[in-house]
């Protein structure tokens, strides 16, 4: 099946006339999201995001390679978004369609080019060795709003990931296994999230978190990426119909509220995951830090 079957005329007219009265087919408010759940896998760097029926799994892997000759002090960070027939029978294997292209472009702009990940911290020996961080997104179910779900999954996975510890002595590099030394977190400078708005009736109606049917009927979309401090990473507008400049401004205001919510959710999920891993206070026990001798102990040793 090369493309998603288009909704029937009846379906789309009904949806559009309902939207004119500010009613959505699933009864949500125009600016409401479907229920979101974020879970982490048993290994570091896996995040599973469910947004209504949409489901995205992000996985981070890391290996040692040589850096690009023109970027000697930087590690490599790549994002791979290959859609498979798991998500929808319309996705073909080995053929890039527009959904995939737009998704990878938005993520590239939001996360890579906004400098969310400090690639310099992935450098081991300048010009010789660096970490190559590979992020892979698996779209398991596609029911609209892939961009927001993927971005959320990717940022959460990056925050969850730990890379192996290294030790550099001159030219010699030792990479410690996860069992030998506690792996370390990545250096994340800020957490950008995407919020996409679909617009209808020449920009009169703006809808957040569109389902697949709503996406198919929309005139165009505006994707805003920002972090919780309101710093905009990118704004993209796709689709033919023009949008009013002022409504883009209202989009960014609405996006900021949403992004703050996302940020809080990720922080809480990470905290819960850490508490789950640290059952019985094993982390405290593994700490290599020596216990400071107290005064009475010192006196005892003198005797």
């Amino acid at each position: 099946m090369p493309s998603e079957p288009a909704p029937s005329t009846n379906e789309s007219t009904f949806l559009l006339s309902a939207l004119r009265e500010n009613i959505r087919l699933d009864g949500r408010a125009l600016d409401a999201y479907r229920p979101i759940s974020l879970t982490f896998g048993s290994e570091y760097g896996t995040a599973d995001v469910r947004l209504g029926k949409t489901r995205v799994l992000a996985k981070i892997a890391c290996e040692v390679t040589t850096p690009y000759p023109d970027r000697k002090f930087d590690g490599i960070f790549t994002i791979n978004t290959e859609l498979s027939p798991l998500g929808s029978p319309a996705f073909e294997v080995g053929r890039q369609d527009t959904t995939e292209l737009l998704l990878s472009r938005v993520l590239e702009k939001t996360i890579r080019r906004s400098g969310a990940l400090d690639t310099e911290s992935l450098c081991i020996v300048a010009g010789q060795k660096c970490f190559h961080l590979k992020a892979t997104l698996h779209v398991l179910d596609h029911d609209g709003n892939l961009v927001d779900a993927s971005c959320l999954a990717l940022v959460a996975a990056l925050l969850h990931f730990r890379r192996q510890d290294i030790e550099v002595k001159g030219e010699d590099v030792t990479i410690f296994d996860v069992r030998e030394r506690e792996p370390i977190r990545l250096t994340i400078q800020h957490r950008p999230f995407c919020v996409s708005f679909s617009y209808y009736h020449n920009g009169e109606v703006m809808v957040q978190d569109a389902t697949l049917l709503e996406e198919q009927c929309r005139q165009g979309e505006v994707v805003v990426s920002m972090n919780r401090f309101g710093e905009v990473a990118q704004i993209a507008k796709y689709g033919g119909a023009p949008v009013d400049g002022l409504s883009v401004l209202s989009c960014t205001t609405a996006a900021l509220e949403r992004v703050k919510g996302f940020d809080r959710m990720v922080t809480e999920a990470l905290k819960a995951d850490e508490a789950r891993r640290d059952e019985g206070g094993l982390m405290a026990e593994l700490s290599a830090e020596n216990e400071r001798p107290t005064g009475s102990m010192l006196v005892g040793s003198e005797n």
Partner: peptide
């Protein structure tokens, strides 16, 4: 476990976990 695929299953053995989706018969 999946919504969009015609048939799907998650299978976990001692070593691996695999998520499978089957669509068919399709064009």
């Amino acid at each position: 476990p999946l919504v969009r695929a015609d048939g799907s299953a998650t299978f976990t053995s001692n070593l691996y976990t695999v998520l499978a989706a089957a669509n068919g018969p399709v064009e």
